[in-house]
Structures are given as structure tokens and as C-alpha cells.
Design a protein around this nucleic acid. Structure first.
Length: 789
DNA sequence: GCTTAGGTTTAG
């Protein structure tokens, strides 16, 4: 390092001093070629003492200790103090801290590796200041005086009971044979794990539980401030190797804890899959013996742990369940600081309708194909709290495993059955039950079936961009064979023949009028809120659109007609009277025997009219004026047909009453009655305004010309028939469930016409929903429950 | 500066 900085003073001075010192002293570190040399080639005057026998009061002159280097820290230097290096050596059951000072610290750092066997002499004994925390030996060895000497053998061969081979420098202790306060190397099969989570300290913590052929189960706690250093565990059954972890008894159970210099490597646990070590370190040791150890654990685990479904595909998800999901990220969007939305898929179709969380288009990173959402293939995952940090680093296209996802039905009320409630997926805050998420490398063998499935779907999805209209229709129109749950639910279909591609609302707004567009949107709000107000009267002649008069207004017209009540006589009619009520029928119709079909009624109130007309086919209320027959004011219906009422246009109807033209009419209905009377019949129409919204924009669209097809009712029926009114109400409730969020509203495929109208000299762009029909379940929620069972 | 957590469900 110093050589890289020629400006610095005395660049070589320290090195020269070191070399000089080494020459003057006895070499402090001796390497031996054979383990037995540690016992034979060291000075004979040194007497061996076992670590466990060391005491503060022990005489350490002419004594030596031998042990494996189980910890080796870095050389610590400061201006005030000489160089230091802390290590720990272990002999049988006991580990003791050793501190090397000065040049010895540097030499030890360069010459000795963890796992080496050392023989130390010339040490002094002091009290260990870290006994309470590291639970190692109460004493500490200090290697500082001029006599301090290290003999090292660095090609250790284990005689232990473990998974070793001749080339291995490591001994692996069976989990059942772990002793307290030892630094050990272990292999194990993961039976539980949590993704790393931040601690209250400086590190992230991974907690896991492992087992091995000895059948002992041991919890492990791994601390590291670098996320990348944590074990890359993707699922239960993975195999983990831990080096230099410390045993510790907690709550009566053996646990493993990372210590200085720990390391880890993990492997897929599936038998027959390639043994690829997963590690952030490029320098980990991995040889044939490790392959054998992994394979042995795989074989053992395959027999021990019953084959369990590793993760649950969307096609198997049930409401309320907690499950692990392996998937690909399509898009993500931040909801707020404590919540992030992930749109994911795994190539399977969920049997339940899936909640689509709508977010502003500019907030969405990545693209979620709407065609997939339509097929229940996109899961909307809401990631909360402590998981937001990790989720925000994800990029669309990544493969993920989400642990302990919660499938939540959106509507939890008693009234709505689960079968129609859209599912959302929550990764709740906290780490219990392993809640968390991880990225799985794309090349991971276990991902290959998933990737093949996604690719096959992606191929289909890309074809619809080829503008093949037939395929487009097939893709966007829910086929009858689709999941029954979806068919029970509510959706719309376009009935037009337009060969146009689906566009966004933002696109529609940019189009020049007039144009026909296909869109996919939700109903954010609607007007009028009182549905009786959506029924209008429309004159096809002058295009006047007026409200349907209420009974109060109509009754007044009848009262006005009664006021100047006088008999009237018309040459074309025969009249019969009873009290103040007169009935007129056409003479010509009497002759053609159709007179029962059309009755003119004079001198009745609205109530009486309703009673009488209920049993008649066509009744026209009339009044007399100067002895002549007149129709009532057009504020009242000019015709009552059963329970239906028909109105004439004030503008377009003949103002004077003339002899009805009855010739040639055999069956009388509202049209030929109107024609015979010179009345311009007004049509009933349903008119509503929907506020439509998609990911890109919102706009207000009218539905009226095709409203009857949309609602599957006749507007005239809704004027009189309760069932038809209920049907409109139910449909509107399905479009926008009362009190619901946008997320709960169904996506609608709509055909939209744009046009301009001029009003008060201003040109305004209007949108109208045409050629669209609602489909699905129109029953009320109460009935719905029955049908869902 | 040398701890942190120590499996066991949010409540959106």
C-alpha cells in the first residue's frame, strides 16, 4: 500500500526496521511440514499445557499450548499503540483468545490461516475481558515478549468424526455433537429460514434452522451488515455450509452464531440438480469432499423430508391461505412509504378473480399486460413495511420468491360470498413465518420450468400486438370455457364489428373526432345517482330530450281537463256516458270490429284513468273544448296502454285534434295510435353518464343510444316495470359497487364513439358508449349467495 | 463500536 504513494515520507523505513528486527531476534513463526513435527521439532524444554488447564495463576515460562486457529482477526494498528491481532485457538472442548503484538501480529497475519494448527510458547496469561460476551476461556494469551514463538502446521488433516476428505482443511461436526462455546464448521439442510432483516444494531440478521443426518435441529443466527454475505437460501431443503460459527446454548438448546471470520455457502437441495455453490465470496474453498457432503445430505433429506410442493402456483391459491409464490415481476409501483405494489405472474391462472390495483401510469415501473389480467394471471402483491426496502430494489423481469404471502379476499363482509370477491396478495410487515422476499437468479435450475411456461404465454401475448384482429378478439373476449367463477362475475363485451385495437383513455382524448375506439376502463362514478332520473323522453323528430313528468304534474293536467267539463260530440265517434265519465269509440273501428282496441276517455282523474286503462289495450284521455274533442296538454301522457304511458312531443305534434285515421289498422299500438292522432310519439330513453377511468386517464362518457342493449332492458319497460328498474339498479351496482374502491370495480371492455356538439357557440367533445353489453351475474347479492353455495 | 436475535402471521 505504501509503495503506491511515493510522496509519503520514509516509504520503506518500517519494512526495513521489521526485517532488521527479524534478523536480530529468533524467527518468531516457524512453519513445520508435518503435524507430528509440532511435537518433535519444537524445543524440548517447552512443556505442553492443555488450554482447559490454563489458569491466571499458571506458570507460563517454558510452557506451550497447541490448538487449531478457529478465529483470526485483522491486524489492528493505530498511532498510539503497536500492531495487534486477535485470534482464537481451540483444543478439544475449549477455545481461548490470543493477542499477537507488534511484528508478530503482522507475521501471524501473513503466515497463519484459519484451520491451521499452532503451537504457542513465550506467552503471558491475563484475564480475558470478553469472557462474558464470547464465553470463551476466562484467560487470554498475550504474545508480545521477545520469547513469543509460534510453530504452525498448515496442512491439517482431521481425525474427527466428520465429513472430510484428504484434501479438506475443514472438519464438519455433526449437529448432534456440538458442544457449547466451540467454533465449528457444519453442514445442514435448511428446515426454516428468514430472509435477512435489519437488527437494532448495525447488521442484518438471518435466522435459520438446520438439520443433518444426526437428526439434531439447530437454530443459526447470522449477522452481517452486508446483505450479500448472508446465505442465499431460496427454499426449505436447501443445503448450507457454515464455517467458523460459534456454538452457544440458548434456552437450553444448542445454537450457532456467526463469529469473526465466518463464511457460508448454500446449495440447492434437490437431488440430481447440479451442485452449484451460492456464495458472494469468490475465494471460498469448495472441493470434491464438499460435493460428496452436499450429495449425501440431499439423499438423506429426500428420504427424511416428505416431498412437499415447494411453492404454490396461482392456480392453486385459495382465499385466506398463506403461501410461497415463485414468480416473475412484471411491474411495480410505490403506493406510499410503507407499501409497494408488485404485479407478478407465474404463468398459471388463478381460479379466483384477482384484484387489480389501479395506479397512476407514471407511477408504474414496468408493464403489466392487460390481457394477462383479464385471464386472472396477474397477481397484485401489496408489500408492506420492512419488506418495502427490498422490494423497491427489484426490477421488472426479475424472478422472485415471495414468502408467506397472504391471499386476502377484498370484500370481507358477511353478505358477499368469497367466490366473487377478488383476491389480493399481501406480504404483511414483520418477519414471522419467514415473511419476506428474495430474488432468484434467472439461470437457477429450479426456475427453468417456470421460465418455459412464461415464454409460451409471452409468445401468445406478443401475437396480439401483430394486429391480428381475430386473435385479438379471441384473446380479449372471455371465452365460455374460462373459469366459471369469472363467468358468474360481471363483465362487458363489445358487439360491434369494428376492427380497431384497444387503446387507452389518454389515447382516446388525443383522437380527433369523430372516431370509434375500443377501451378498457372502470366506472369511477355515475350520474344520475337516483336511477329514476335516468329515464328520459326523446323526440326522434326534433331530438328534444325531456324529463318524464311525475304523477303530480300529470294529475294536475287531468284536473285542469275536468274543470271545464262539457259533453263533446264528434261525427266519427260513438259516445256513451256514465255519471261524468264519457267514453268515445270510433264508428269505423266498430264496423271493423277493432273498437275495443282504442278508447277515448273523458272526465276522469289520473287515478280513474289508471284503473280503467289497466284493463284496456289503448286509452286516450281527452277533454272537451267548445263541444269539440281535444287531447290533454302534452305534459300528460296522450296514451295509456296497460301499465305504460306514452307521451307526445309538444313541438312536433299537431296542435289540433282531427278525426283519427283508423283505416287499415288491425292491431293498435302506441305507434299507430300516435300516427292516427297526429301525435309525434316520444321515445323512452335511458341516459346515464359514466366517469370512466383507466391507468392513463379518465373521461365522462354517456350511455343512451345503446343503453337498452347495455342494460338488457327496454327503456319503456323501466318506466313501468319494477323488475326492469331493479335490473338497471343491479347493473349499476355491479359497475360500481356501492361504497367500493376503484380496485373493486370490474374492468369493462367498451366501444366508445367520440363526437362534437355545439352548445352556445362552443364546440364540445362528447363520448358515448355504444355497441357494448353487460354480461355475467345480474342477481342481487342475496340471490348470489344462494347460487354460490 | 463489538450489538444485533433467539422462527410462530397483518389486521393495510
Amino acid at each position: 500500500m505504501r509503495r503506491q504513494n511515493p510522496q509519503e515520507k520514509n516509504p520503506f523505513r518500517e519494512d526495513l526496521t521489521m526485517q532488521h528486527a527479524n534478523v536480530l531476534r529468533a524467527m518468531p513463526i516457524h512453519t513445520v511440514k508435518c503435524a507430528s513435527d509440532l511435537d518433535t521439532s519444537v524445543p524440548q524444554h517447552l512443556q505442553r499445557i492443555s488450554i482447559s488447564d490454563l489458569k491466571l495463576t499458571s506458570d507460563c515460562v517454558q510452557r506451550s499450548v497447541k490448538g487449531e486457529v478457529v478465529q483470526k482477526g485483522p491486524v489492528v494498528s493505530s498511532r498510539q499503540r503497536e500492531h495487534m491481532l486477535k485470534a482464537a485457538i481451540q483444543d478439544k472442548d475449549t477455545s481461548i483468545n490470543v493477542i499477537f503484538f507488534g511484528t508478530l501480529a503482522k507475521d501471524f497475519s501473513q503466515t497463519v490461516r484459519q484451520g491451521d494448527i499452532v503451537l504457542l510458547s513465550g506467552f503471558t496469561i491475563s484475564k480475558s475481558p470478553t469472557e462474558q460476551t464470547d464465553r470463551l476461556h476466562p484467560c487470554l494469551l498475550e504474545m508480545r515478549c521477545i520469547d513469543a514463538c509460534v510453530h504452525v502446521y498448515s496442512s491439517f488433516v482431521s481425525a474427527g468424526p466428520a465429513v472430510v476428505s484428504s484434501e479438506s482443511r475443514y472438519t464438519y461436526v455433526p449437529l448432534s455433537e456440538l458442544k457449547p462455546s466451540r467454533i465449528v464448521n457444519v453442514y445442514g439442510v435448511v428446515t426454516f429460514f428468514k430472509q435477512p432483516f435489519p437488527t437494532k444494531g448495525t447488521d442484518y440478521c438471518s435466522t435459520l434452522k438446520i438439520t443433518d443426518q444426526s437428526d439434531a435441529k439447530v437454530s443459526c443466527t447470522i449477522f452481517s451488515e452486508r446483505l450479500d454475505d448472508h446465505p442465499k437460501i431460496f427454499r426449505i431443503g436447501d443445503i448450507i455450509r457454515l464455517h467458523r460459527v460459534k456454538t452457544q446454548v440458548f434456552n437450553g438448546s444448542m445454537t450457532l452464531l456467526t463469529t469473526l471470520g465466518w463464511s457460508t455457502v448454500t446449495f440447492d437441495g434437490m437431488t440430481d440438480s447440479p451442485i452449484e455453490p451460492r456464495s458472494s465470496s469468490r475465494t471460498f474453498h469448495f472441493g470434491e469432499s464438499d460435493k460428496r457432503a452436499v450429495e449425501a445430505l440431499r439423499q438423506w433429506a429426500a428420504r427424511q423430508i416428505p416431498a412437499t410442493e415447494p411453492t404454490v402456483p396461482l392456480s392453486s391459491v385459495q382465499t385466506k391461505m398463506f403461501f410461497d409464490l415463485t414468480c416473475q415481476l412484471l411491474a411495480k409501483a410505490s403506493i406510499d412509504t410503507r407499501c409497494i405494489l408488485l404485479k407478478v405472474w407465474d404463468g398459471t391462472k388463478c381460479p379466483h378473480p384477482m384484484l387489480n390495483v389501479a395506479v397512476a401510469p407514471d407511477a408504474l415501473e414496468g408493464e403489466a399486460k392487460t390481457s394477462l389480467a383479464r385471464e386472472n394471471m396477474i397477481a397484485n402483491v401489496l408489500v408492506y413495511d420492512n419488506h418495502v426496502e427490498g422490494a423497491s430494489k427489484l426490477k421488472p423481469g426479475m424472478f422472485l420468491r415471495l414468502f408467506n404471502l397472504h391471499a386476502v379476499a377484498q370484500r370481507a363482509s358477511e353478505e358477499s360470498a368469497d367466490c366473487v370477491s377478488p383476491l389480493s396478495f399481501h406480504l404483511h410487515g414483520g418477519t414471522s413465518y419467514g415473511k419476506g422476499l428474495c430474488v432468484i437468479p434467472s439461470e437457477s435450475p429450479e426456475l427453468q420450468p417456470l421460465k418455459r411456461l412464461l415464454e409460451s404465454h409471452a409468445a401468445i401475448a406478443s401475437e396480439d400486438i401483430v394486429n391480428d384482429v381475430t386473435l385479438l378478439e379471441a384473446w380479449y373476449t372471455p371465452p365460455e370455457t374460462l373459469g366459471e367463477e369469472l363467468n358468474k362475475d360481471f363483465y362487458t363485451v363489445r358487439t360491434c364489428e369494428h376492427t380497431v385495437q384497444q387503446v387507452t383513455l389518454a389515447h382516446v382524448k388525443r383522437c380527433t373526432t369523430p372516431v370509434v375506439c375500443h377501451v378498457r376502463a372502470k366506472v369511477k362514478s355515475y350520474q344520475p345517482q337516483n336511477l329514476y332520473q335516468c329515464l328520459k323522453l326523446f323526440c326522434p323528430q326534433c331530438t328534444a330530450l325531456v324529463e318524464v313528468p311525475n304523477d303530480e304534474v300529470i294529475a294536475r293536467v287531468f284536473q285542469d281537463a275536468l274543470r271545464g267539463h262539457q259533453p263533446c260530440s264528434e261525427h266519427w265517434a260513438v259516445t256513451s256516458s256514465m255519471d261524468s265519465i264519457s267514453m268515445h269509440v270510433s264508428c269505423e273501428m266498430v264496423l271493423s270490429n277493432t273498437h275495443t282496441q282504442l278508447l277515448f276517455l273523458q272526465g276522469v282523474t289520473l287515478e280513474e284513468m289508471c284503473v280503467i286503462s289497466a284493463a284496456q289495450s289503448n286509452v286516450v284521455p281527452v277533454r272537451s273544448e267548445d263541444g269539440r274533442m281535444r287531447l290533454l296538454d302534452f305534459s300528460a301522457p296522450f296514451l295509456f296502454r296497460g301499465d305504460k304511458r306514452y307521451y307526445g312531443c309538444k313541438q312536433c305534434s299537431r296542435s289540433t285534434f282531427v278525426e283519427p285515421e283508423v283505416c287499415g289498422v288491425e292491431i293498435w299500438d302506441e305507434h299507430n295510435v300516435a300516427k292516427a292522432l297526429g301525435v309525434q310519439l316520444m321515445q323512452y330513453a335511458l341516459l346515464m353518464k359514466f366517469e370512466l377511468e383507466d391507468e392513463t386517464d379518465s373521461l365522462e362518457a354517456l350511455i343512451w343510444e345503446d343503453a337498452e342493449r347495455f342494460f338488457h332492458v327496454s327503456a319503456a319497460d323501466t318506466s313501468a316495470c319494477q323488475d326492469s328498474q331493479d335490473k338497471v339498479q343491479t347493473t349499476v351496482d355491479r359497475l360500481h359497487p356501492p361504497g367500493s374502491s376503484m380496485a373493486q370495480c370490474p374492468w369493462l371492455d367498451l366501444c366508445l364513439c367520440t363526437y362534437t356538439v355545439e352548445e352556445n357557440g362552443k364546440i364540445q367533445v362528447c363520448y358515448q358508449i355504444t355497441n357494448t353489453e353487460t354480461r355475467g351475474n345480474f342477481y342481487t347479492p342475496q340471490r348470489d349467495q344462494l347460487s354460490c353455495g
